[in-house]
């Protein structure tokens, strides 16, 4: 059960889907990165957002009542 919950967790979604998505958006927007590759930056942002969403129970900061 814990493995299933982890699989569908915001952290996994942030890392596995949002990370590459953010990387593609960085490339598309032609953002010049001072350090790191778009994928690394995407994974850090996506994974970070996922962790925050997991901790707060919300992707949009506002907690569901």
């Amino acid at each position: 059960m814990k493995a299933i919950k982890f699989l569908f967790s915001p952290f996994i979604f942030g890392l596995a889907f949002m990370g590459p998505l953010i990387a593609e958006l960085i490339v598309l927007a032609d953002l010049g990165l001072s350090s790191g590759t778009p994928l690394i930056v995407g994974l850090i942002i996506g994974g970070g957002l996922g962790l925050i969403a997991q901790a707060r129970g919300s992707w949009i900061w506002v907690k569901p009542s």
């Binding site: 967790s9 969403a53 949009i60 569901p64």
Partner: peptide, 10 residues
């Protein structure tokens, strides 16, 4: 609708 589909929503 937006809040209910958040990870902690119902």
């Amino acid at each position: 609708s937006i809040l209910r589909r958040q990870p902690g929503g119902a």
